[in-house]
Design a protein around this nucleic acid. Structure first.
Lengths: 186, 186
DNA sequence: CAGCTTATACTCACTGAGTGACTATTCCGT
DNA sequence: ACGGAATAGTCACTCAGTGAGTATAAGCTG
């Protein structure tokens, strides 16, 4: 059995879905997508240009987007990408699936999801935020129990676990605040 | 001019230095190092066995460690690694250089440093912690200013920046607590 | 108006992170 | 006696991420 990609690499996030989302809003070529990523989600993702192209190439290879070369007079020709139906499906699935409860995943993956959901419907974003908060909260409980069970001798392991717990706690606060902020339109 | 490795990849942390540190304490072979990494720093790093071997291979290629194959009767032969002088130098340098001020770097890179420093001399660990706290604090100020300067229209960029600030703040609290905890020996 | 930088648009070759599957042998428990 | 853990390591792979390079036209500067 082939283990699906998502579970194989819960970390290792890249702006893959953000690019799918941008392409869905409007088909565009790589250079343009890279710019949008920077302007609109620049505090979230920091992909280099070649990284953006890399991801687009992979997405095309995997059949989630399809690019068509457009020749231009007086300019380098370019490839305009659009979603395939597989890509659309993948995007929709991502939009309704909470991120893994790590600080990093929330900051990049969840934030991207929130961005796209909000554009469609602020209410959907609100729902996503509270579902995400639940996932984080339950993971937090789990971590707390695990820490309690850690060998007290393993001091640095405990400290490490303690940091995680703290970070998740402040993450949770933030998630709830985001819910509020979206709720009452600023 | 070649840009040095460290600044090229401030993120992308791997248990590279943790392995150097373990080898310094006691020369060992890969399997053993992997186990120690798990037992002693398992809450911090989660490297697979092959990942550990990968890193060891690279470290050897780069001249930081040197491995000698030991044949064993009735067991697969193994390679015992020890630090080279370049490796020792690299390790010492790492030990006195604060981590980049991101949550992830603190959790893995800084924690590892603290672990090794503490074994040598709790006082050194204390110093490292307060130096690290300074670095984080100053980065935090920078972020706050950058957030204030962000276009308020870019709501999601602001939210993203806000989250970073929160995470860094709780990080800083934790760092100071760690200082205390080390200070009064429990 | 010659010459410089900047913007457009993409390609390539690379190092490094991280995983899973595989090879072999020995020891241990049932 | 026999299956499974433990010991010890290799291999081939995908994905993350960077820097340098290619080519052309628009814009501006002295």
């Amino acid at each position: 059995m082939t283990i699906p990609y998502e579970s194989r690499r819960a970390s290792g996030l890249s702006p893959e879905f953000a690019l799918l989302g941008l392409v869905e809003i409007e088909p565009a070529h790589g250079y343009e997508l890279h710019q949008k990523l920077h302007q609109q989600l620049g505090e979230i993702w920091r992909a280099s240009r070649s990284q953006t192209y890399n991801i687009l190439a992979r997405l095309e290879e995997q059949g989630y987007i399809r690019g068509r070369t457009e020749a231009q007079a007086n300019r380098p020709s370019r490839r305009r990408f659009e979603l395939t139906s597989a890509g659309r499906q993948r995007l929709e699935e991502w939009l309704i699936t909470p991120s893994t409860p790590s600080a990093h995943a929330i900051r990049v993956d969840f934030m991207s999801r929130l961005y796209f959901l909000y554009q469609r419907d602020p209410q959907a974003a609100l729902t996503a935020a509270s579902r995400q908060a639940e996932v984080v909260a339950s993971h937090l409980e789990e971590l707390k129990q695990r820490q309690a069970a850690l060998d007290p001798q393993m001091r640095f392991n405990r400290l490490g676990a303690g940091l995680r717990i703290r970070q998740l706690t402040s993450l949770l606060d933030w998630l709830r605040e985001v819910g509020h902020e979206i709720g009452n339109g600023t």
